[in-house]
Amino acid sequence: MTAYLLLDHIDKSFTRGSVVSDVLREITLAVEKGEFVSIIGHSGCGKSTLLNIVAGLIPATNGGAVLEGREIDGPGPDRAVVFQNHSLLPWLTVYDNVRLAVDKVFARTKSRTERHDWTMHNLDLVQMAHAKDKRPAEISGGMKQRVGLARALAMEPKVLLLDEPFGALDALTRAHLQDSVMQIHVRLRNTVLMITHDVDEAVLLSDRILMMTNGPAARIGEELTVPLARPRRRLDLVANATYLKSREAVLKFLYERHRFVEAA
């Protein structure tokens, strides 16, 4: 296989006592370098579990993930995660949260001043340089998520993993952050794997959307390429035929599947 990131027949089941529950079955996915791929599904379908497997935080039961020809067998900064609940360390300032990652990842390759500059560069990228001396408790939820994004970007990951990064934010803040992520993606051409349950978010941001069936034993039910040119602008897409068609396809999948499961 030549794919940049390859998820190869991943199965995941959890065992509690004698009860085995299948969560994921036969998940196979190839992501190209620079591609923005979203995984969408109803809550509880195991999409976060899939992301954690790619991050290396939990092992797959069968199959596995391969990044640039190397099998993933544990977490590492080449697959930086932006967590759903920001996961900033509350006793460190915004700057120190990012600096911790920079110091760890570039301990040997960058000098002290270079690490400082790199930290500030990434805070600038998410427009948070002004709050560098604040602690997480002193900034808003959207700002925390920005810092979490800066921390992940600062690791220069091969794949950026976004675990419903905007799920806990209000709609306006979310839109603002989505625009930031799009700008950064255009600039840096990161490879991104994003988990979401928001249809508009998936269509707006992604090159490709993978729709997961409901659990137990969730699979990738359908795959949709979003053939919209970048850079994309939210307002231009409101009445765009391709955008609306993509949106409709995802909505149909989610709600037809959903109904199907309820009847079964």
């Binding site: 930086a80 360390l89 990652a101």
Partner: peptide
């Protein structure tokens, strides 16, 4: 969450002790 961050950053035992464990359990 903090453990996940430490794992993604690959903090070693000593770094985990000083940077995560002591402040978090303080």
């Amino acid at each position: 969450d903090y453990r996940n961050v430490a794992q993604v950053l690959r903090l070693n035992h000593l770094e985990f002790f000083w940077k995560i464990m002591v402040p978090s359990a303080a």
